[in-house]
Simulated assay, not measured.
Amino acid sequence: MDDIAVLIPCYNEAQTIRKVVTDWKKELPEAVIYVYDNNSNDDTAVIAEEAGAIVRHEYMQGKGNVIRRMFREIDAKAYIMVDGDDTYPAEYGRKMVDCVLQKNADMVVGDRLSSTYFQENKRPFHNFGNSIVRASINFLFHTEIKDIMTGYRAFSFQFAKSFPVLSRGFEIETEMSIHAVDKNMQVENVVIEYRDRPAGSESKLNTYSDGMKVLKTIMRLFRTYKPLAYFGTIAAVLALLSVIFVIPVFSVYLKTALVPNFPTLIVCGFTMLAAILSLFTGLQLQNSVQKNRQDFEMQLIRLDHVRKDLEADYEK
């Protein structure tokens, strides 16, 4: 079991990976540095190994697939996840790891948005997208995470081993944030300096297609983790529409004792039934969510025993 594991998912980062590995070896000399190559068609893996990293491979394309593999294969007391593009300075790693090891944080977020991100990042739609995602998640899940999409994070053993990775691509950071909030894990924010990619290095994130995937992920997880709020909102909208359109029908009926708009009345009736069904669906699913949270807490207890056993074996 490693004391600290630095996890670097990479796809075609030959230009920057040597510097990234060297910086982390300097800042955290006791850490084991893992570079997971995700089907690069350049010399990323070779350069990383020459720089002193342990190189492994994930052949399913996508950052989410890489992180799933990392969390499965590596046991450590604390994890640092960082991109291989040299946009995240290694000098903040010690502070982030200390939050995990000394303050029992489950996830530490490297907050770019509170420092230099909007000045350094030359892609305005990325800036706008980050702001939208942060505002959406903080509103829907009642949290105060400062940077949802950052690729610079630290994790505890319990988080890494209990996080169910479902996303395949860049939505993974969003999924991590929502999972931590929903499961009442301790989340810390550390403000970091962000620097843009060096000339010649290209981002793998597509502003529009990956942005839509992130927004879909937010709604999917909102439905999964907060079904009563999700289906309750749908029920409220349907009930409101039903009432709005049925009021004129009843108004005419009260005056004339006639119902001239039977189709409207019938549609309003079915709309109200749909609202009631939606509400009860949310109530039923909310019970399942509560049971899942109870099971998750028991899983954390078991993981704590596993961690202690691994640490004991490591000390021997």
Rank of each mutant, 00 (worst) to 15 (best):
T16F: 06
V181K: 01
E193G: 06
T233A: 07
F296E: 09
A51T: 04
A31H: 00
K63H: 09
Q286N: 14
E173A: 07
N127A: 07
P260T: 08
K77Y: 06
R220E: 07
A135F: 10
F250P: 06
R18N: 10
E315P: 06
K25E: 04
K316E: 11
E13W: 03
Y230I: 04
Q61W: 15
M1K: 09
P29L: 03
E30S: 13
E30Q: 15
P248A: 05
K226E: 06
I148P: 00
P164D: 10
L279K: 13
I33T: 03
I145Y: 01
S114R: 10
V214E: 04
A180P: 03
K95R: 12
R223M: 07
A257N: 14
A275Y: 00
V267A: 11
Q290P: 08
T116V: 02
K316C: 08
V35Q: 02
V214S: 02
S201Q: 11
M272V: 07
V97A: 03
A76F: 03
D106T: 04
I8P: 00
A199R: 11
D210M: 08
T256H: 08
T143H: 10
T271D: 01
V190I: 14
V32A: 08
V249L: 03
A90N: 01
Y79R: 01
E49H: 07
L300G: 04
G232I: 02
D43P: 02
S115W: 11
S114K: 09
D106Y: 03
I145P: 00
D210A: 05
E193T: 15
R302N: 14
Q119F: 09
K122N: 13
V214Y: 02
W24T: 09
D37P: 05
A236D: 13
N39T: 14
S203C: 08
L228C: 04
Y34D: 03
Y59C: 00
L285N: 08
V187G: 00
A14W: 06
M96R: 01
Y253L: 13
Y36L: 13
Y92T: 10
V246K: 08
P89I: 13
M212V: 15
E175H: 05
V246S: 11
N292I: 06
L283V: 15
A180L: 02
M1W: 08
G64K: 02
K291P: 10
M272L: 15
P248Q: 06
R112I: 03
A235F: 00
A312N: 11
D85S: 10
S177D: 12
A51I: 07
K146V: 02
P260A: 04
N138T: 06
K146L: 09
T256C: 08
A53L: 04
V243I: 15
L101K: 12
R112Y: 09
I80K: 00
V191F: 01
A76I: 05
L238N: 02
K103T: 12
Y117A: 01
R307F: 12
E50D: 13
Q186C: 10
I47S: 00
F139L: 13
Q284C: 07
V289Y: 07
Q15H: 09
L101Q: 06
G200K: 04
R153A: 06
E58V: 15
T233C: 02
G269M: 05
R197G: 03
D304F: 00
R94G: 07
H126Y: 12
A236E: 14
D23E: 11
K77E: 08
